[in-house]
Computed example of a mutant assay.
Amino acid sequence: MSTTKKVAIVTGASQGIGAALAQAFRQRGYLLVAVARSMPASEDPDVLAVSGDLSQPGTGARIVEQTMARFGRIDTLVNNAGVYVEKPFTDYTDADYNLMTGVNLRGFFDVTRAAIPAMLAGGDGGHVVCVSTSLVDRANARIPAALASLTKGGLVAVTRELAIEYAARGIRANAVSLGVIRTPMNPDSPGGELAALHPLGRMGEIDDVVEAIMYLEQAPFVTGEILHVDGGQSAGF
């Protein structure tokens, strides 16, 4: 076990943005804990793959326990796992609510609550990153996504709160607020409708998000920041 390398936990790491983030951390020499509902095992000895449903109480604590048992420290937690359901507000069901609050809020709460004490115990501080959406800042009549705004807006608020609460103890908290990103779950639309939602006239790419988070990771004087990676959505049209 190495205690000299930094350790990053990335949730939602099996595909898309999470998988790219996992790769980016490894390329930068981090030991990695890759978390997903069904996370394939890794042959890399410096990668701990953890499968678990973040919406279930206790999953976050188990992830942190396994991380500490394997690597002995936690430096960075990226709360990337999330669920998005788009429909008119009155069409949302209790199942939709339970799913989105379970993953987006409960998942964040459970793993972050367990990770921060481990960061503090290490004595070197830490970094908590959340992934949100620019719909929180600028609603769009064409995109009915009230539960996304409700849950991801909560992550924006708690990011700022944690940044202040733990600043004096060396833990930073930041978030990225995204526009529409091209991922396997959200491919490009043939008619260009998704690109047209952004003033820059294109969808975001996974690398745009990865580079933003890597910037925050390497910016020790930045905390409480909500970094918009949204092609200008939050600025307006």
Score class of each variant (00 low, 15 high):
residue 45 P to R: 13
residue 52 G to C: 10
residue 51 S to A: 10
residue 34 A to L: 06
residue 48 L to S: 06
residue 64 V to C: 00
residue 36 A to F: 03
residue 57 P to N: 03
residue 55 S to P: 11
residue 65 E to M: 04
residue 49 A to Q: 06
residue 47 V to E: 14
residue 50 V to W: 00
residue 48 L to Q: 08
residue 53 D to I: 07
residue 35 V to E: 09
residue 54 L to S: 05
residue 59 T to H: 11
residue 59 T to Q: 03
residue 71 F to G: 07
residue 35 V to A: 05
residue 35 V to I: 13
residue 69 A to T: 13
residue 70 R to H: 10
residue 61 A to H: 08
residue 52 G to S: 11
residue 52 G to D: 09
residue 36 A to W: 02
residue 56 Q to W: 00
residue 69 A to I: 00
residue 40 P to I: 06
residue 36 A to E: 09
residue 40 P to S: 09
residue 58 G to F: 12
residue 69 A to N: 11
residue 36 A to Y: 10
residue 65 E to T: 13
residue 34 A to V: 05
residue 72 G to V: 01
residue 63 I to E: 03
residue 40 P to T: 06
residue 40 P to K: 10
residue 44 D to C: 01
residue 68 M to I: 15
residue 48 L to A: 12
residue 56 Q to A: 15
residue 59 T to K: 00
residue 46 D to N: 15
residue 73 R to G: 04
residue 71 F to Y: 10
residue 64 V to E: 00
residue 42 S to W: 02
residue 59 T to F: 06
residue 57 P to R: 02
residue 45 P to W: 11
residue 62 R to W: 01
residue 67 T to D: 04
residue 67 T to Y: 02
residue 73 R to E: 08
residue 54 L to C: 05
residue 61 A to L: 04
residue 69 A to E: 14
residue 53 D to H: 08
residue 69 A to F: 02
residue 71 F to H: 10
residue 43 E to H: 15
residue 40 P to L: 07
residue 53 D to P: 02
residue 65 E to N: 13
residue 58 G to W: 10
residue 52 G to Y: 05
residue 71 F to L: 04
residue 70 R to Y: 03
residue 61 A to K: 14
residue 51 S to P: 13
residue 62 R to Y: 00
residue 45 P to C: 09
residue 44 D to W: 01
residue 69 A to Y: 02
residue 72 G to A: 07
residue 51 S to T: 09
residue 64 V to W: 00
residue 48 L to W: 04
residue 58 G to R: 14
residue 69 A to D: 15
residue 56 Q to K: 14
residue 71 F to V: 08
residue 35 V to W: 10
residue 57 P to I: 06
residue 47 V to T: 15
residue 39 M to G: 03
residue 73 R to N: 09
residue 55 S to K: 11
residue 54 L to Y: 04
residue 63 I to T: 04
residue 41 A to W: 09
residue 45 P to Q: 12
residue 59 T to G: 09
residue 71 F to S: 06
residue 35 V to S: 07
residue 39 M to E: 12
residue 70 R to G: 00
residue 50 V to N: 08
residue 53 D to W: 07
residue 46 D to P: 00
residue 35 V to Y: 02
residue 50 V to P: 08
residue 37 R to C: 09
residue 57 P to A: 03
residue 42 S to Y: 04
residue 61 A to R: 14
residue 41 A to K: 14
residue 40 P to E: 08
residue 37 R to E: 05
residue 45 P to E: 15
residue 61 A to Q: 15
residue 65 E to I: 02
residue 35 V to H: 01
residue 43 E to Q: 14
residue 74 I to V: 15
residue 40 P to C: 07
residue 40 P to H: 07
residue 40 P to R: 05
residue 61 A to D: 06
residue 57 P to L: 07
residue 41 A to M: 13
residue 54 L to W: 08
residue 41 A to Y: 07
residue 37 R to N: 08
residue 62 R to M: 14
residue 58 G to E: 11
residue 59 T to W: 07
residue 59 T to A: 08
residue 69 A to S: 12
